[in-house]
Design a protein around this nucleic acid. Structure first.
Length: 703
RNA sequence: GCAUCCUUAGCUCAGUGGUAGAGCGUUCCGUUCACAUCGGAAAGGCCGAAGGUUCGAUCCCUUCAGGAUGCACCA
């Protein structure tokens, strides 16, 4: 017997050594796998944020994907699991800004180029840490193919996509209302906004002959249109376009009556004034009727000169003062102090979003969504759990255009160039001066053909999800690489359910649009990992579980199986330490089972009933594996090994030699089934069994 | 308002068209040589409520209640 077995199982020492053994074997690389493997099986790892360390959710990703990959590898597929790191655009910039804050610096004082370099260094430094933690989890991914979302070839491919979409009319630049965070000084897409229920004051203000309701009096300075429903009998005497002179916050103004069906007659008084620059619904009305739009609040949340005496004040401070003034002028009819409404806030800092009109790049989503919907409705993507299909369809059917411009430096630059305003024609080209193009989409700095003006690159960067949305094909080297031909479309996209819109749906649309094929056949979505009490982990609550603490204490194997047993796809899991500790005991149990079996090796003949029983279990488990029921497989093999194999069969074998001779068969095959779940200890034990030629990682899955 | 999910043992959750399962916890017993990071045993549930389909429902359908999440609108 191996001397190691006399000691208790030591996961920490074993796991580091075994990972190295696998890496040295080269079996993470599909081309190195034994046998003639033609059928590829591909998973693209969701690129991990390189701005911190591995959290419990990552641990779950690594576990589930590794289970899939190891199972398919054992089944003889040419398996590729492609690892990646994410620059994570805004997310990382926020993390870095917090770091700057601690150092009493701010990003607004640093030159964009220098800031970019600083964040890049920070990210590259962090990524070393992240990578070693991914390895610690046992992830059998092909490190030789590792990609970073800012790699030159990735950036190039993303630029090509932008260019093509622009040429196809799917991308436009427009002065449209966007969601603006005055703290982070950037705009967002609709997904980066969190609705928050609040109770605020609701003010009824006298506006000439009308009473208008508002929760935001500070936006009202420029309001010169008064809108009502065309069928509202209360206001039938007022006609579209009618001018009314009235006294307002800073003196007399002239208001214009607008009739529009979007007004809810039952809300408030049924009359409202509009602020098109700072409200998306008002913006729509203004667009429809061709009305003026005026900016009232600047990008820092301060009032502009239109506010008169309030100019320069922050809206938060100005609001009570404005009301005070209105009260003095007897323009406040009443105040409802219990107005419940939803406020849109920045998902990172909670700052109230101030809609602003800005000139940005937008993706026209309807055509992309339509094409994706056709495929999804036909069932060409399998969603696990199934109901995510309905959620996706619902979202795609109600999709809005996507603002992809971000006013941050940390991201992929937008390959758009703006013509300088000054225009001195080149000699002899005076006539052609009007042909100067305002915007040129190009990866290189363009020169103007007709004048000597320069082109300045758009200072904005892409929403990180615009590039992530192309990840499956760009990570595989689209368009020309061998890998793309071999491994695309990929087999499974496994990721967190809460980024189904941010990421999954967009990958479907962009993958289909660029490559003509869906980027993956199956979407597997896992739920959130919660703390032991079932609460969401957050830094502010201080209940964040560092998975690396558990791998140190109980081994990565114990953490892995603890994350999987009973954890059905899509539902969240409360991660309790006792749970992991329990599976640590299981590893030890398996260790002792091995000790007994190796001490008692007799013949390798298997008792027929025992073989049949095991093979039936293996068959059942294989069917579960094929259907992604890992939560059941892990439970079944755990119980078989502990409560059937150890408790009953081994006990029986002490009395019955025929049973004893069967033990090796059962151990061997149990190790194979358990391997995807607990790869380290199974590989370690496998190496101790007599006459092993292969590593367990490339052994054949039991029939 | 629209959508999705959940409601099963003290806790956390699996599961199945044929009178319920696990882990942890609890109680009791046990250290004869694979294992005290253990073994053996026990207690504990009209499977949210009401209807319907069925020979039979915890499971399928409808309604309701409670909880969670997502999306939209709110002047």
């Amino acid at each position: 017997m191996d001397g190691k077995l006399l000691k208790p199982y030591d996961p920490k020492e074993t796991e580091t050594r075994i990972y190295k053994l696998w890496e040295d074997s080269g079996f993470f690389v599909p081309e190195n796998l034994p046998g003639d493997r033609k059928k590829p099986f591909t998973i693209i790892m969701p690129p991990v944020n390189a701005n911190g360390s591995l959290h419990a959710g990552h641990a779950l990703v690594m576990t589930i994907e590794d289970i899939m990959i190891r199972y398919q590898r054992m089944c003889g597929q040419k398996t590729l699991w492609l690892p990646g790191l994410d620059h994570a655009g805004f997310e990382t910039q926020v993390v870095y800004e917090k770091k700057l804050e601690k150092e009493k610096r701010t990003r607004f004082e640093i030159k964009p180029k220098d800031l970019y370099k600083e964040i890049l260094d920070f990210t590259l430094e962090n990524s070393k840490n992240i990578k070693s933690q991914i390895k610690r989890m046992g992830a059998s991914c092909d490190w030789s193919r590792e990609k970073f979302t800012l790699d030159a070839d990735i950036v190039k491919a993303v630029h090509q996509t932008f260019k093509k979409m622009h040429a196809d009319g799917l991308i436009y630049r427009g002065n449209r209302i966007v969601s603006w965070c005055s703290k982070h000084q950037t705009s967002f897409s609709d997904l980066e906004i969190v609705d928050e229920e609040r109770v605020d004051n609701f003010y009824y203000l006298k506006y000439g002959p009308f009473v208008i309701g508002t929760a935001r009096p500070e936006t009202k300075f420029g309001d010169k249109y008064v809108v009502m429903h065309p069928k509202d009998k209360r206001y039938k005497e007022y006609k579209q376009g009618q001018k009314i002179k009235l006294e307002w916050i800073n003196g007399p103004i002239e208001a214009t009556v607008i009739k529009d069906e979007s007004v809810d007659m039952k809300f408030g008084t049924g009359v409202m004034t509009i602020t098109p620059w700072h409200d998306s619904a008002d913006f729509e009305i203004a667009e429809k009727h061709g009305l003026d739009k005026e900016q009232i609040i600047d990008e820092n949340g301060k009032l502009l000169p239109i506010a008169g005496e309030f100019a320069g004040e922050h809206i938060k401070k100005a609001r009570p003062r404005i009301i005070e003034k209105l009260q003095k002028k007897e323009l406040v009819e009443k105040i409802d102090e219990n107005y419940k409404h939803v406020v849109r806030t920045c998902y990172k800092c909670g700052t109230v979003i101030e809609p602003q009109i800005k000139n940005q790049w937008f993706v026209k989503m309807k055509p992309l969504a339509q094409a994706a919907l056709v495929k999804i409705k036909k069932g060409e993507i399998i969603y696990i759990p199934e109901h995510f299909k309905k959620i996706t369809v619902h979202w795609l059917q109600n999709i809005m255009d996507w603002n992809i411009s971000r006013q941050i430096v940390w991201g992929i630059p937008i390959p758009a160039w703006f013509h300088e305003p000054k225009c001195i024609p080149k000699p002899g080209l005076e006539k052609d001066i009007k042909k100067c193009k305002e915007i040129i989409i190009s990866t290189e700095k363009p020169m103007c053909e007709f004048c000597d003006a320069e082109y300045i690159q758009d200072p904005d960067t892409f929403d990180t999800w615009f590039s992530s949305g192309q990840w499956p094909f760009v990570a595989l080297g689209f368009p020309k690489s061998e890998d793309f031909k071999m491994f695309y479309p990929t087999d499974i996209m496994e990721t967190a359910g809460d980024i189904i819109f941010f990421w999954v749906a967009r990958m479907v649309m962009l993958g289909l649009y660029i490559t003509g094929e869906l980027p993956f056949k199956t979407v597997y979505l896992h739920g959130m990992v919660l703390d032991a009490k079932g609460q969401k982990m957050s830094k502010s609550k201080g209940n964040v579980i560092d998975p690396m603490i558990y791998t140190d204490k109980y081994g990565a194997d114990a953490l892995r199986i603890g994350l999987v047993v009973g954890n059905t796809p899509g539902t969240s899991l409360a991660l309790a330490e006792e749970r992991i500790r329990g599976y640590g005991k299981f590893a030890n149990k398996l260790w002792n089972i091995t000790r007994f079996v190796l001490d008692n090796i007799q013949t390798s003949e298997v008792k027929r009933e025992l073989k049949e029983e095991f093979d039936k279990l293996a068959e059942d488990i294989t069917s579960d594996m094929e259907n992604f029921r890992f939560h059941l497989v892990s439970d079944k093999i755990y119980h078989y090994i502990w409560h059937r194999f150890a408790d009953e069969i081994i006990e029986e074998s002490k009395k019955n030699p025929e049973v004893k001779s069967s033990l090796m068969y059962i151990l061997e095959n149990s190790l194979k089934i358990l391997h995807p779940f607990m790869p380290f200890i199974t590989e370690e034990i496998w190496g101790m069994l007599p006459n092993r030629k292969n590593l367990l990682i490339v052994e054949k899955w039991p029939q």
